[in-house]
Amino acid sequence: MNTPLTPKASQVTTPFWEGTKQGELRIQRCNACARFYFQPRTSCRHCQSLDVEWRPVSGRATLASYVINRRPMWGTEPQVIALVELDEGPRLMTNIVEVAADPEALPLGMRLEVRFSERGDMSLPMFAPARGEA
C-alpha cells in the first residue's frame, strides 16, 4: 500500500463527511441527555435515545494521546497519530499537522484547532496547534 486510505461515508455518517467538505466539523448531540457523542450512530452513545441531531462544533480540542509512527504505510514522513478531545466532549482519532513530529513539540494537553485536509473526494478533519489561545 502506498496510497493514503480514503474513507467512504456510510448512511449514518454522511452528514459528518458532507460537513467536512464544507469546512465544518459536525458531531451528533443527544437532545435527551444534552451530550455530544462520537462515533456517529442512530442512537445516543450515553443514553440510547433516538432523539439525536447533528450540530456544528467549535473545532477546538485538547491533545489526549498520540504516537509518532516512524513506519507509515504510505509516504515517508512520520505521522503523528493522535487522540484529541473536543471541547464539546467527544474524542476523535486524527493527525496533528503544522507542527514538528517531535515529542518536545507535542505536550499532552496542548490546545488544538481543526483543519480540513483533502483526500480524494473527501475532506479529513485534522488538528493543528491553536493560534492565539492562552
Partner: peptide, 29 residues
C-alpha cells in the same frame, strides 16, 4: 480493508492500520 467500516472512516485514514500504530495510541495518556 473496508473504507466504510468504523475504522475505515475514523482511524485508518490517519495511518492507524498496523497494530504498532493503533494499539499503542492510548499509551501516553
Amino acid at each position: 480493508l473496508d473504507p466504510s467500516s468504523p475504522a475505515g472512516q475514523f482511524e485508518q485514514p490517519y495511518g492507524a492500520l498496523a497494530p504498532y500504530s493503533t494499539f499503542t495510541v492510548p499509551v501516553l495518556a
